[in-house]
């Protein structure tokens, strides 16, 4: 049962990340996803310090805001201070992450709940420790599962409702502005969703590997389809596939679960890439053969 809940929780993380990752990838903002996932740390620590519990709404809001703040600072650096784009990203998130580390070391001294290890790498194996039990004895799954579900509903709902907006923002921002769409609102809303997703995912998969969930499945999906809706579906499929196969591999080889998931994800990408190459060169050859 615990296995099932762990896989289910991680699958929802994977789906949330995959859906948003598609738009990050298409907007060439993969590294901004990385930046956000690191920059939420100070928000998490500060909110945790004041609220004293992991699951609080205050923590979610605080951390999400600090993620959005990071994208705001990145924009500021690159637009106003004319720092090169990737340098602006590197500066911002290392700075915010470092502040978070210092805050952990000072505010969280001797606190077992939140430490650097858990922030960086998550603790998927411990997800089941924090159980929700109703009627005194009916176990309905870990708390993280429900947090993820709520976040998942928000992400999924936003993408369904705002599909046209996110599509146009990703394809042609200037044109979107020209027809009167408030692109900066859409931009910060998307960034907020990414921040929310990484915040709720961090205790499951950690701040470092969440990027693997955000970027690898959409990149794999892009190899197999030329349609946006299909790309969203495929990204989810590849994400969940990596979760299930990664979990089994981790149990079998007795290694880090998240590590195994991201490794599998990367391997799937390589495999799909290889297959597509093979198919393409085969069909090219058959065309040439047919012409001869």
């Amino acid at each position: 049962m615990n296995d099932f809940f762990t896989i289910l929780t991680a699958s929802i993380v994977a789906i949330n990340c995959a859906l948003l990752g598609v738009f990050l990838l298409l907007r060439k903002m993969a590294m901004v996803g990385d930046a956000i996932s690191h920059a939420v740390l100070p928000g998490i620590v500060i909110a945790y310090y004041f609220s004293g519990e992991k699951g609080s709404v205050l923590l979610l809001v605080g951390a999400t805001l600090s993620g959005v703040l990071a994208t705001f600072v990145i924009d500021l650096f690159s637009r106003k201070a004319r720092v090169q784009g990737d340098a602006a990203i590197g500066m911002t998130y290392t700075l915010l992450f470092a502040v978070g580390m210092i805050l952990i070391a000072t505010l969280m001294q001797g606190n077992a709940d939140i430490d650097q290890e858990c922030v960086l790498y998550g603790d998927i194996a411990l997800v089941n420790m924090d159980k929700i039990i109703i009627d005194d004895n009916l176990y309905i799954g870990p708390r993280a599962l429900y947090t993820e579900l709520v976040a998942g509903l928000v992400v999924f709902g936003s993408i369904i409702v705002g599909f046209k907006g996110f599509k146009l923002l990703s394809f042609n921002e200037d044109f979107a502005k020209s027809v009167g769409i408030k692109t900066s609102r859409w931009h910060y809303y998307l960034m907020g969703l990414v921040a929310l997703t990484t915040v709720v995912a961090f205790e499951v998969v950690g701040a470092v590997l969440v990027v693997g969930f955000l970027i690898i499945p959409p990149a794999t999906a892009q190899l197999v389809t030329h349609k946006l809706k299909a790309m969203l579906v495929w990204a989810c499929v590849f994400g969940v596939l990596a979760v299930i196969a990664g979990y089994m591999a981790a149990v079998y080889f007795n290694v880090s679960i998240t590590g195994a998931m991201v490794t599998v994800s990367g391997s799937v990408f390589a495999l799909v890439f290889g297959i597509m190459r093979l198919r393409r060169s085969k069909s090219a050859k058959s065309v040439i053969a047919a012409e001869i």
Binding site: L26, K164, K167, L168, S170, F171, N172, F175, A176, V179, G180, I181, K182, Q222, T225, H226, K227, L228, A230, M231
Partner: peptide, 17 residues
């Protein structure tokens, strides 16, 4: 970008509203 010709032309019908 993963879009067809029709997808892009339909964007001409998008408005802020």
């Amino acid at each position: 970008f993963p879009a067809s010709v029709l997808d892009v032309v339909l964007m001409g019908r998008y408005r802020g509203t």
